[in-house]
Design a protein around this nucleic acid. Structure first.
Length: 358
DNA sequence: AAGCCGTGGAA
DNA sequence: TTTCCAAGGCT
């Protein structure tokens, strides 16, 4: 590692910056209370950190408010129906997080008496909690001297030390650099401070080096390489997959929906029955015998590793229809907000046409 | 141990 | 329109 000023100097500078600039978030305690030693509720820290995995603060805010209003404690969440938690998570993405969230709530309730463990090692055993989240909870909720390493911290460390090794190869080196700076005083505030620095000043594009508390000590700032770091290995192109979604409406308005199995893409979520999603033209698989009308419009949606073009077929069925797949859900109990985004796009395109179908 | 797993906003 | 990216974890 490159020669740097004392770690204590750098962490103190950053904490001063944080005390003056910390952003307000629903899961944070007010600055005055924080400076007088108050810690946030571990449940709120856990919930927010899981929601924030690969997800922006702006996207998380309203979900966090809705979850804590509906389930104020981890024990409340443990008693929830699976479908309610999955429905409340709909639209936030990475749905394995919601499945593991509920599993974790039940483990904490049943095996830890409703209290989150306070050590990195114990937290790491829980479903959905990996190295980052275990460090974040133990540092932020319990003020343990753990080092959080997320995308922000990797970027800040790569620039501070002008490390050009591409990710993910550079991960161990960046982790060591971050650990060397973690103070024993206020480690929880420090953890949030580094991430706030990355989110607001040391940003991926157009970093605001001129107002950075570490400006004078940043190697990439001196070298003029900040905007190009961290280096990353090239990504693979996304293939285009094709599929057909089937929207059947019963005579009473009920809609044919299907709960997806608890694994893989959109696992555990509600959706329209459909074909496989393949790069070749998919085989039609209508879920119920009916007069299907294929719409010209298609739903387009991009997932993490492929683009999807989804053709939409609609049909009206009699009350005695017997589907091979899915279950009719009464219209009054159907909430489009409980669908993952791609399925909501399908509904938005189908709904107008269903009215004129008969 | 690479690949899988969502979404919406910014540029 | 397309690409990139965000407080990662699981298998």
């Amino acid at each position: 590692m490159r020669d740097t000023p004392g770690a204590a100097r750098l962490s103190a500078l950053l904490l001063d910056w944080y005390d003056a600039n910390a952003r307000s978030m629903p899961w944070r305690v007010a600055p005055a209370a924080r400076l007088s030693g108050q810690r946030p509720d571990p449940y709120a820290v856990w919930l927010s950190e899981v929601m924030l995995q690969q997800t922006t603060v702006a996207a998380v805010r309203s979900y966090f408010e809705a979850f804590t209003a509906r389930w104020p404690t981890v024990t409340d969440m443990a008693g929830a129906e699976d479908a309610d938690v999955m429905g409340a998570w709909a639209g936030l993405g990475y749905y394995a997080r919601a499945r593991n969230l509920l599993k974790c709530a039940r483990v904490v309730t049943d095996e830890y008496d409703g209290r989150f463990p306070d050590t990195h090692a114990e937290l790491l055993k829980l479903p959905g909690i990996g190295p980052y989240t275990a460090a974040a909870i133990s540092a932020i909720a319990f003020d343990a001297p753990e080092t959080v390493v997320d995308g922000n911290v990797e970027r800040v460390m790569a620039r501070l030390h002008d490390i050009h090794t591409p990710l993910p190869t550079a991960k161990p080196e960046l982790t060591a650099a971050a650990a060397a700076l973690t103070p024993s005083d206020r480690p929880g505030d420090y953890a949030q401070a580094v991430m706030d620095l990355g989110a607001t000043i040391c940003t991926p594009r157009n970093p605001a080096c001129g107002i950075c508390p570490w400006m004078a000590f940043c190697a990439a700032r001196t070298a003029g390489t900040a905007a190009a770091l961290p280096a990353k290995l090239p990504k693979k192109p996304k293939p285009i997959r094709l599929g057909i979604a089937y929207v059947a409406q019963r005579a009473d308005g009920a809609l044919l929906l299907e709960r997806r199995e608890d694994r893989g893409l959109l696992g555990g979520m509600l959706g329209w029955p459909g074909s496989e999603w393949t790069e070749a033209v998919p085989e039609p698989t209508p879920p119920v015998d009916a007069e299907w009308l294929l719409l010209e419009d298609e739903a387009r949606h991009t997932f993490t590793h492929f683009h999807l073009r989804l053709k939409i077929a609609i049909a009206s069925t009699p009350m005695n229809a017997a589907p091979d797949h899915g279950t009719f859900i009464e219209r009054s109990r159907f909430r489009p907000t409980e669908l993952p985004t791609v399925m909501r796009k399908v509904f938005d395109l189908a709904r107008g046409r269903l009215e004129n179908l008969g």
